[in-house]
Nucleic acid binder design. Structure first.
Lengths: 217, 217
DNA sequence: GTTCACCTGCTGGCCAGCCAGCCAGGTAAC
DNA sequence: GTTACCTGGCTGGCTGGCCAGCAGGTGAAC
């Protein structure tokens, strides 16, 4: 942590307030709408301070991506660690999908903004790639642990399955975000069935499509 | 089609050139970078004409979304109509995923930009929701036709399966786009296995995960 | 213990550049 | 002459970045 950007200590209270304000502003107003003026006011600091700490809007956004990764990562870890079987893994995944979109859509919006920005800003693209890689690895590690404990059997390399879970998750969230009026509950159940087909139960009892149903929220 | 915006006929040659230029500019430079100046130059018209026809940048972007839907839709239809079995459906889906990201990434980038924009522009959000609904319906209709012809059996309502296919597709494309250096071929194969589990073969021969493998590219 | 030099954190006015939108006017067709 | 199409100069508002300078703290000198 305690990363240096433009040789300035970024772990101070104000610097963190700026990053948080920028994060929520980007989620609410988008990158373009998040002017230094607005963000500074919301962070309760002067405009100049954003430059003092981060030098440019771009580098501030990199910090935002980093910060978001921490939050996102922590959330995922708690969800993952509670799962102890294939069914639980899938149902936790479904639950966290619903919860995220319903209660913390800023995760998805922010990711969208960052992806968009990454198209034209290599620094952001790097950061984002690192974040995604980290999520994949963590997810894969958890699955491998469950496999080594004899609780599940993976139908493919852990990392690839993790890619599919995350990809499916983001794909469905995106769709949910774009059209909140549409009820995607049933579609997510179907997605869970598909995801479930990549995890087999250990101990000989075969996975059935029905067993993944597990009423979500 | 011949839709009216600000009471102006938009089916003229120049109006269409403007929409196309805007479309490709947004894919290349993003919404923010697509200034009237640039787009006008690329369309070979004056800046004023963009206002004459579309009134505002926002409404021009709505036209871009509409236009993109047509292109995207046509492409999907040709792919879908060639598929005549569950395996073919999945392998065409995989192929089109690879092809899109490799040869026409502007589809994905544009969708990303539009999604982002839709967060703050209800007009765009509506248009986008319509587009996505149209894609889902078309996909579902094709699957239902195959089912009624006795070629496949659907493991869930056609529309939900279509949602999952599209969601998975966008999720994987997004990931591919964000980090082109990463080889996602194997992950896409795994995604295909998951997708395949939602389609059963008719006539008693059970679907095996392996049968969906079907070398991509 | 008072003074002074110095430093870091921080402020807000200023500026050059950019952009969407406006509009006065031009052209061609009928 | 009227209408539809089209042009490009102009402008007001906004933005990111720059920078001169201030407040308050530290420590050395005297």
């Amino acid at each position: 942590m305690a990363k240096e950007t433009s040789g300035r200590q970024l772990a101070t209270d104000k610097a963190m307030r700026i990053v948080d304000a920028m994060r929520s502003s980007v989620a609410r107003r988008g990158v373009a709408g998040s002017t230094f003026d607005h963000v500074a006011r919301e962070a309760g600091v002067s405009r100049g301070l954003l430059h003092y700490y981060f030098g440019s809007k771009e580098r501030l956004l990199v910090e935002v991506a980093r910060r978001d990764a921490e939050v996102r990562f922590a959330l995922m870890a708690t969800h993952l660690n509670r799962a102890n079987s294939a069914d639980e893994l899938v149902s936790h995944w479904v639950r966290s999908l619903h919860a995220t979109v319903k209660h913390e859509p800023e995760f998805v919006v922010l990711l969208l903004e960052l992806y968009t920005l990454a198209q034209r800003t290599p620094e952001i693209a790097d950061e984002l790639a690192t974040v995604m890689q980290g999520m994949t690895t963590a997810f894969a590690a958890r699955m491998q642990m469950l496999e080594s404990e004899g609780k599940i059997v993976l139908a493919a390399p852990a990392e690839k399955i993790a890619d599919v879970f995350l990809g499916l998750g983001y794909g469905m969230s995106l769709r949910l975000l774009a059209d909140p009026s549409r009820d995607m509950t049933a579609a997510i159940e179907v997605a869970a069935v598909a995801a479930r087909s990549l995890l087999w139960d250990a101990e000989g009892y075969a996975p059935t499509a029905a067993s993944a149903g597990d009423a979500a929220e």
